[in-house]
Design a protein around this nucleic acid. Structure first.
Lengths: 347, 347
DNA sequence: TGCATTCTTTCAATCGATTTCAATAAAAAT
DNA sequence: ATTTTTATTGAAATCGATTGAAAGAATGCA
């Protein structure tokens, strides 16, 4: 049984005394094949272990039926949800996905992009790494007309098709919510403001402060990466502020959880001393104490929408170049970490 | 710039007035090519946008440089770590991975296996779904001699190559630890005992009880799936037991976290009323209160080891058929959820 | 100088599926 | 009965890279 020759359409043709062309056509349900002939071929194929050779076929067709997915990191709830969404659509359309992750490094991202290009994916879905500053490395795709669709972490130049949530609005809602809980001094813990997601949330935060007549202070902005260490440092900074802030909008649930734990260990009461809102609606939010108020960020939907649009473009239904920005709905999920249980003392 | 013709080695050959064979050999660093010729070709290629056509190449070589990864679910910290480990190795070896997930369904698993087979992956790394009861659907791989390596969730028939941790030992250690903390009635919350990982952990649990002279009672075994709902139900069962157990070994950190939260909401003190040990060392364990004692389960290492062995087999270095079982080290991580802070009253 | 040896390069076949064009057979129309 | 359509099928070229065998060029040796 080991490593025998693969059956090919020629083998089938020979054994049925017909030509390979007919076999090929029959297998593709080409209309111009006699029903009886097709049945004969189908029956025969069902008995043998024939599997079509995708390389021969791709070589002719110049289509790979594969799309590349480039993400900044695999170890996050959000990303795996997106992948699940993408997978759902691609699988049903008979496309494979090749997943590459950049570990937040622009260099690795560029290498991955090049690799996916060489593998001749029919399209690309990408979320940019932390320190990606331009899209030069995507140029081969653009030049060759291979569709690229960005999601979540995107460039804000407005010339590319992107699938995002309204980060500014979410930032605004989160901050507004804290203000409504009586918070007057709200810190914002976030990451590199060069990335659209973070700069937009920051913008929303600033706008909400402004609209409510609250002053913004530089000190209230804490920028770090998204590691556990950064979360702990943020907590430390918050503790050392005086007066201590009474609210925190943290750009990521994991960071928020780390922060909360550190603060609580120092005896800070949440939400009464400081109310907290996270971002992402990760599973973790419901398991920590108090449960975390957060922005629901529909990863699976984003994945589905991205994949659907890309595949439609590839298939010639719809056109990515017409669609510029697809905004996925998102919203606030209120839980214990932000809802004050005792009345606030006025200043 | 759009969709121009791809450059091929024939184009290169024509423009340099040499034959395509020479170009092909030069690009593969074949020794029998004159240094000057090679340099000329390399220089030329560097200027053009040539990229080799992997389909033509695969068609000849009958190698896809792709390995399939079949997992039961994407939405877990453990699995993404495994994927990261696999990706690390495969990327450095120039292999692509195609990821498929079965959503814990045996039917989808079979469909995915078939698909990966048709895509002609050079090898397969798989973790079985929940309700997979036999390996029939892998038969095409076995028949054709395509290497398959199972990890974590495996069949226990001993004829396949597997990468696992010593689940029985881990179950034993976890239980022993609880006993050393003074626990006398220890529940075990787990999942389908048809899966090796859970049955082995259960075995370890039983052995530890036995070795310490503690009786096992059917009631102390709670079997469910790994959802949040199942976690909440388990907590309810525990609450309704009388006398209430004083220890819990839960097969998964997420479930443990859900359980803990539910118990605490009912006023149960952890670890003093009930000490808890989880399994997996997910990030969540350090963020909940109290922090969760757990078994460290090195996903990334398993991924790396699996990929390394598979690729070595494919490359003819080493042979999977000689290696039967690879056991990855693992161990207990003690945190607050299991360490009693007040002395236990004797019975 | 003549012949053997080593280096390079080319020729041509191959991998397997697809598709254009032509050929044949069968059915329909005149 | 003959011509025109229509339905099926087949022959052969094509996609692009690879490789064994053969030819050609360059070098060594007597």
């Amino acid at each position: 049984m080991k490593k025998g020759k693969e059956t090919t359409i020629y083998d089938i043709a020979r054994q049925l005394n017909i030509s390979a062309s007919t076999v090929s056509r029959a297998l593709q349900d080409h209309p111009g094949v006699n029903k009886k002939t097709k049945k004969m071929i189908d029956d025969f194929v069902a008995q043998t272990s024939f599997r079509t050779n995708p390389f021969a076929s791709n070589l002719r067709n110049k289509q790979t039926k594969t799309i590349g997915v480039l993400v900044h990191e695999l170890n996050s709830n959000f990303i795996t949800s997106v992948l699940a969404g993408i997978e759902k659509v691609t699988a049903s359309e008979g496309f494979d996905i090749i997943i590459a992750h950049s570990s937040e490094s622009g260099t690795r991202e560029a290498a991955n992009v090049k690799n996916l290009f060489n593998k001749r994916v029919d399209g690309l879905i990408a979320s940019l790494s932390f320190d990606t500053s331009n899209l030069e490395h995507f140029q081969p795709f653009f030049d060759r007309g291979v569709p690229v669709l960005f999601f979540d972490r995107v460039e804000q130049d407005g010339h590319k098709t992107v699938v995002v949530i309204d980060n500014a609005k979410c930032g605004y809602i989160a901050t507004q919510h804290l203000i409504e809980q009586g918070c007057k001094r709200i810190v914002h813990v976030t990451s590199s403001l060069n990335r659209n997601v973070y700069s937009q949330r920051y913008k929303g935060y600033r706008d909400a402060l402004f609209d409510n007549g609250l002053a913004f202070e530089e000190d209230l902005l804490i920028v770090g990466d998204l590691t556990r260490k950064a979360g702990a440092e943020a907590a430390l900074k918050i503790l050392n502020m005086s007066p201590m802030p009474d609210g925190a909008f943290i750009t990521n649930d994991f960071m928020a959880a780390v922060c909360m734990r550190a603060l609580r260990e120092k005896g800070v009461a949440i939400p009464n001393d400081i109310a907290i809102v996270g971002f992402n609606n990760d599973a973790i939010g419901e398991l920590i104490e108090p449960a975390l108020t957060t922005i629901n960020y529909p990863g699976e939907d984003m994945g589905e929408i991205a994949a659907r649009n890309l595949i439609n473009h590839i298939k010639g239904i719809g056109n990515l170049e017409q669609t510029n920005t697809i905004i996925v709905r998102s919203g606030l999920v209120v839980r214990g970490s932000s809802v004050r249980t005792t009345p606030q003392t006025p200043d």
